[in-house]
Design a protein around this nucleic acid. Structure first.
Lengths: 220, 220
DNA sequence: CGGTCATGTGACTAGATGGTCACATTATAT
DNA sequence: ATATAATGTGACCATCTAGTCACATGACCG
């Protein structure tokens, strides 16, 4: 957590620092980020920086919190279109809505995701708390889905969580790699081409790659 | 490519340097790796290092080449048990045999994978050549599988490649995260528990998470 | 032996890093 | 206006970084 002095700052100055930090982490990750550069870019003095934060990890923690808050605010007034959706439909809605949210704060998402999805794997324990959030909610979702008879009960929950976590991360990575190339990320996300890609991907997650009889009926 | 002086070195000394580099990259990745530490650990002088290599990227390139050679040598005398295997069976064999290979050079695999799978995403163009190798062979495999009527033809090739690439990477990451915790990695890979996990994972890739009628016949 | 060429060496440079601290400035309260 | 507390500042420190270079050591050859 940043120190009180940081929160006493005028919002404008706070934003200046956050912007600088977001850029730095998005560009260099956490371990390679330079506090000196953050200080230079946010046009504060070195002494001030250390009066606001412990170190760069402290800044990063704050960015994660910030992203969490923004996400919560974004989802606050959003509800799936159909109340009787099954789990896969709900997951599809979550993924698509999540991608729209990502387009609304792409740099912040890039900064945080880059560290949590990649560096985080190697500096394990430090980031476990963040991963656990997603894991737990996915686990609840899947347990319910099995009870409802939507997910194959012969697949254990742990594995199903891994599958969905993998796809959640893969789609995030896809967003960061392909979406961030575009001028208008939001337009790219909402384009029929991107939406279709996500649909197809989740279809494969549901029904698999293999050509089966039951699928023939669907595609014929 | 390392300079000629490096290849003139006695094999023992070369190995010493490789070991030090592998450890450094496995522990710190590419961007955070320190040539100074590699030099210290391999017990050569600074001047010598720069007579062998251009810089640390040069060393890393060599490690990638080395891993490629070792992998090729490992697969040279291995053939899938059944010649009439379908594509999914073949892929399953590749993945499992690949994991056995990984256990035989776990540190080298860790060093290279860490950089290519994670850092590589952000320092794009530099590593594209390596990624293209896997992509191309997966693409050939899938095209053939569609022709054989094994893969759903309504799934475009590009997407199927993404799916298989995602799973190849996910299994690599799983190996690095879980397998490397074990004392005996090889034993862990070949244990029934791990093998079953892989089987189930690839089963889900083939048939999906959703409970379908055709699956009922299989699982009942 | 002397000469030549390849290899080994570590002190040194120039720059960046995270972090501290004595002091200057500003705001608040009396 | 004066005292007190909060905030701002950048020179400075120790440590690390990649890379160079003048010189030392060794090997081989005539």
């Amino acid at each position: 957590m940043p120190k009180q002095t940081f929160f006493n700052l005028p919002a404008e100055k706070r934003q200046q620092i956050v912007d600088a930090a977001v850029d730095e982490f998005a560009e260099h990750g956490l371990e390679n980020a330079s506090t000196n550069r953050i200080i230079a870019a946010s046009e504060i003095s070195k002494g001030s920086f250390y009066q606001y934060f412990e170190d760069k990890h402290d800044v990063f923690d704050y960015l994660v919190t910030l992203l969490g808050e923004e996400k919560q605010a974004y989802f606050a007034d959003k509800r799936p279109p159909d109340d009787n959706m099954d789990t896969f439909g709900y997951y599809r809605w979550i993924i698509k809505t999540g991608m729209k949210f990502n387009s609304s704060s792409p740099r912040l998402v890039q900064a945080v995701s880059r560290v949590l999805l990649n560096e985080g794997v190697y500096y394990g324990k430090k980031f476990e708390k963040y991963r656990r959030q997603t894991t737990d909610s996915l686990q609840a979702m899947i347990t319910q889905a099995i009870q409802r008879g939507e997910v194959d009960p012969s697949i254990d929950v742990e594995l199903a969580v891994m599958v969905m976590e993998t796809w959640t991360n893969a789609i995030s990575t896809y967003f960061l790699r392909e979406g961030m190339k575009e001028d208008d990320v939001m337009a790219w996300v909402q384009s029929p081409k991107t939406q279709e890609k996500i649909d197809k991907l989740l279809y494969v997650m549901e029904y698999g790659l293999r050509k089966t009889e039951s699928k023939f009926g669907k595609n014929a």
